[in-house]
Design a protein around this nucleic acid. Sequence first.
DNA 1: AAGTCGGGGAA
DNA 2: TTCCCAGACTT
Length: 409
Amino acid sequence: MNTIGEPAEAASFRRALLAHYDGGRRALPWRAGRTPYRVMVSEFMLQQTRAETVVPYYERWLRRFPDWESLAGATEDEVLREWKGLGYYARARNLHHTARTVRDRFGGHLPPDPAALRALPGVGDYTAGAVASIAFGIAVPAVDGNTRRVLARLLDIAAPSPAQLRREAARLLDPARPGDFNEAMMELGATLCTPRAPRCGECPVARWCRARAAGTVEERPAPRTRRPVPRVEYATAVLVDAAGRTLLVRRPPQGLLANMWEFPAVRLGAGGAGGAAARPAGEAIVAAARGVASEHASAHAPGDPLPPVRHAFTHLRATYYPIILPGGPKTLPGGPKTLPGGPQTPSGGPQTPSGTGSPPAAWVHHTRLGEWALPVAQQKIGTLLQEWIARRPGSVGAGPDRRQAVARV
DNA sequence: AAGTCGGGGAA
DNA sequence: TTCCCAGACTT
């Protein structure tokens, strides 16, 4: 095994890594026609998200928002709708905010200085280093999860500290090609030096790998400990009026899925002290759904349960029990615009939604749910609603004129 | 140092 | 199921 500590060995390591990268790098869309804007968009999307997952979102985003100017001119609702399904929605808000900063304070150009980048919301050490090196050719390291694993194995360190990783990455970095070097390290981690079943036989830098020599590759880096994930359950009211419209409410501007839309829901009995929470009784779910529905609308049928929708978040596992509730707005068409009880979300959190100008609740035709910023679990409930309507021809009207299909209350 | 913040691919 | 992904931010 060669010792990577020697400067001459470091140079040899760079050559081997970059030659392998040049010979077979993946054809990812953000690697063509690079601009600072496109690099920034890709790096935001790639935070904690696999490259293959990002590809279709990135391509659609660039068609919708091709430059800083178009993004800065968009509303937050438009931005959230484009980001819908990608998760970690604070990234979308931070990118939007950065676009307006670039337009209003930077004269339309992203600063190349890593420290200036680092000061932008949503830009940490990794993203600042990645954008500075890839978009501007500045010789700074960028240590993501892939590079962390590659370095932990190269150096055979079980639990490397962020400072140590940054130091080692800076030492190995190719000052002539910093962006390519950083990408090559990540690419190695994503393709060969994988968390499980790494393909060391194909690795271009295996002869510098201390973990390979020590036989500890699969134990580097050490897995981090994880807490058990609590389970939560919700009764979800899927209201349907005679015109085929359903009610959506907007979530509070802070916390989980901030400012996204959802079907009105209420948490079911806090499952107690762990253990296998018993499946809630059907009647209790329907009663809870009717209760939350009554805050927004009048339901005039008993309620028809749909199959439960399960969804795993990072730190909790949710089960939604959707209940179809034929009903309608409390106010008649042409009547008062504000519902009794005021425009409150179910949780009744601190109101006035920030900035979007959208009302906190809206009746939406079931065929147009795709146009709303619904998180994945809520999209699934929307599909269940559409299937229910298809099964029950005549249960709702033929549908209103399109111009009235979305009625905000 | 630990918790919050989504969703999906792969074994 | 479990792990973790081209992380950042708050407490």
